[in-house]
């Protein structure tokens, strides 16, 4: 480990500190420490997950790295260290508000409810809750889940959508929580649970990396809409402005199409699977008109 480097970065940063335009909030913190802490997920394929060398990669991670570049340029830092911190659906918000990460790049639904705690960059993906089942289980519709066991990833919007549906239709589903998407899918794979409600795109990628993808079906109407956004701390306008501007620039320049194609329409690590998932109209519209509205403020599958 090189201990001299952070000290050098600090000195360098101090030497070129801009006298005017004093940064505050997260930007100041990044400037002072020379480090940006990016929260990533373990198994949100292809948004934020670990490759075969256990490095965080993905669509969201790529966009966050662009943001880190923009911050480095804005702060005129000679070097900006990117530190990755693993988070889960349960820990992401407390860790962000507590300051252990500056920005979360994963598969987090932007909701007005969550906006009471955190802020979001413009939506960068549009998805919604469906369920994955084993074809052999004979589940065709949500009603077929009556009295069955359903696994969910704790802390997700999908958990809430499925529970609300269960209450409304009085299905008497037996719920079991799990820590992350891989673990949840495993419960379906091993037969412990018959279904796993999750954002459909994540279900497609989980199915694609399964041992026998043909064994699974992704079914149902959307139980919820889930526009994804990069998450950051609330009430930090200068930081949010920079993040938003970076994302918008990627959208306007068309660079986003390349990043999208890299993760959704080409083979991706670790197994070289191609998800073959063309860009939805909803996302195309969002790229034309970037916004950070929460799901409650959006229409059905559009924002």
């Amino acid at each position: 480990m090189n201990f001299a480097r952070p000290a050098f970065v600090l000195l360098a940063a101090a030497a070129i500190a801009l006298p005017a335009a004093a940064q505050e909030g997260t930007l100041k913190k990044i400037k002072d420490t020379g480090v940006i802490k990016i929260g990533h997920r373990d198994a949100s394929i292809p948004f934020s997950y670990l490759d075969d060398k256990q490095q965080p990669i993905g669509y969201g991670v790529d966009i966050c790295l662009k943001i880190a570049d923009a911050i480095k340029a804005e702060l005129k830092l000679p070097k900006l260290k990117v530190e990755f911190v693993p988070v889960t659906s349960q820990t992401r918000i407390p860790i962000l508000t507590g300051g252990n990460i500056d920005i979360e790049c994963g598969s987090t639904t932007n909701s007005v409810e969550r906006q009471k705690q955190v802020a979001f960059a413009p939506t960068y993906f549009m998805t919604g809750t469906k369920i994955i089942v084993k074809k052999s289980a004979g589940i065709k519709r949500y009603e077929d889940l009556k009295g069955k066991t359903v696994v969910f990833t704790a802390g997700t919007t999908n958990e809430r959508a499925m529970k609300a549906y269960n209450d409304a239709k009085k299905l008497g589903i037996n719920f079991i929580p799990s820590k992350d998407h891989a673990e949840s899918f495993l419960a379906v794979e091993t037969g412990r649970a018959v279904a796993f409600p999750m954002d459909d795109i994540l279900l497609y990628s989980l199915r694609a990396s399964a041992k026998n993808p043909a064994d699974y079906a992704i079914i149902g109407e959307f139980l919820s809409d889930d526009p994804y956004g990069i998450m950051m701390r609330k009430d930090d306008p200068t930081f949010k402005k920079l993040v938003d501007a970076t994302v918008t620039r990627l959208y306007k320049s068309g660079e986003i199409n390349k990043i999208y194609a890299k993760w959704f329409q080409a083979p991706i690590p670790p197994k070289g699977i191609n998800l073959g998932f063309p860009m939805s109209d909803a996302l195309k519209a969002l790229i034309k008109n970037p916004n950070d509205k929460g799901v409650e403020a959006c229409g059905k599958m559009k924002c």
């Binding site: 349960q90 009471k116 705690q117 696994v151 704790a154 802390g155 079991i176 929580p177 799990s178």
Partner: peptide, 22 residues
Amino acid sequence: LTIGVLELTAQARQISEYTFRT
């Protein structure tokens, strides 16, 4: 709780998630 039993600690975690009253 690591294998999904909703005992006291798991419930506390779950409630704090729904209410933010950690």
